[in-house]
């Protein structure tokens, strides 16, 4: 089985898929439960850390005053404690994530998909050309585009930096002896500027793609529901969708050797479907071929492992 979710669409036929209304009902798993929990822990702790961190740096800001007013006279001490608790949550989530990408098959595939490749640069270049209007061809992006890869690795980088400097500042009495006062000053500076960078990145980069982005506005529900609609897949991850469809088709073909006719009909209808949907994308064909070669490696691995993780999800 591919990542196509068929909870509701088990009995869907290819003809049915061609109908536009139905394409929105089909859901593609974006984040499984474990990933959603990881994301939940990450973003809750992140927001808490931002509030409690900038609350220290800008004690006179209006929103800090509100919080202090609500919490009362021990707000400052509470701030420190909450900040540390949130940091532990974030680091805990990060450590679990490390375990997840090292030992869990889906996690292994995840990090493999996240690894930057040459294709990302090409995608980026094409994307920029498209965005500034030099070309009308939109690059077909895979499971994780350069946008998402940037974001992922920024989080990894940020967590490591913030965690390290944060610990130095947390255990200042110990680290003073090791890094000296200058080390403390540097740690403070890094912790502060990295926090600004991370929050701005989340605000400008991440929030745009999940809130403002017209394809998902008002909000992408992947973080809570775990799924993307077919339409969203078509906009954001067309290459992945294509591969998923192909894989599904291949699987079906293999499974239903007897019903070869049916399968042939199906694939034919799929192609028709695509052609009818994207009549202006014909010129992309060459690019499509190239990407299919590079991303083929990814998908081959993914396809093997996906069923393992999919099983529980499917039952749901």
């Amino acid at each position: 089985m591919s990542t196509i979710d068929k909870i509701k669409t088990d009995k869907l036929t290819a003809e049915e898929l061609t109908a536009k209304e139905n394409s929105e009902d089909i859901k593609y798993l974006r984040m499984n439960k474990s990933e959603r929990i990881q994301h939940f822990l990450l973003f809750t702790s992140f927001i808490t850390l931002i509030l409690t961190g900038f609350g220290l740096k800008f004690p006179e800001a209006f929103w800090v005053r509100w919080i202090v007013y609500i919490i009362g006279e021990n707000a400052f001490e509470a701030r420190g404690i909450v900040h540390r608790i949130a940091s532990i949550v974030m680091i805990g989530a990060s450590l679990y994530h490390l375990y997840y990408i090292l030992f869990v098959p889906r996690g292994k595939q995840l990090v493999r998909d996240f690894l930057p490749r040459k294709q990302d640069l090409i995608d980026f270049k094409d994307s920029m050309l498209y965005l500034i209007g030099k070309t009308e061809v939109k690059p077909r992006l895979g499971r994780f585009s350069y946008i998402e890869k940037m974001e992922y690795w920024a989080v990894v980088w940020g967590t490591v930096i913030m965690g390290a400097t944060g610990f130095i500042l947390w255990f200042e009495n110990t680290f003073l002896k090791i890094v000296g006062t200058e080390g403390m000053e540097i740690s403070t500076a890094i912790h502060y500027y990295e926090a600004i960078l991370a929050s701005l990145a989340i605000l400008v980069w991440h929030f745009y793609f999940i809130f403002v982005n017209p394809d998902v506005a008002p909000m992408s529900k992947a973080w809570s529901k775990g799924y993307l609609t077919r339409e969203q897949m078509e906009h954001e991850h067309p290459l992945e969708l294509e591969e998923l469809d192909r894989a599904a088709a291949e699987e079906k073909a293999a499974a239903n050797k007897e019903a070869e006719e049916k399968a042939a009909e199906e694939s034919a209808s799929m192609k028709k479907n695509e052609e009818s949907k994207k009549p202006d994308d014909e010129s992309q064909a060459s690019a499509e071929n190239k990407t299919s070669e590079t991303s083929g490696n990814n998908n081959s691995g993914k396809n093997e492992e996906n069923p393992d993780t999919e099983v529980p999800e499917d039952k749901k």
Binding site: M128, L131, I132, G133, A201, V204, Y208, V212, N213, P214
Partner: peptide
């Protein structure tokens, strides 16, 4: 970086609209 992100997303938004 943030400047680039902002620019990228403004362009993206414009193109998508």
């Amino acid at each position: 970086l943030i400047g680039f992100m902002l620019l990228h997303n403004i362009l993206d938004l414009r193109r998508k609209l």
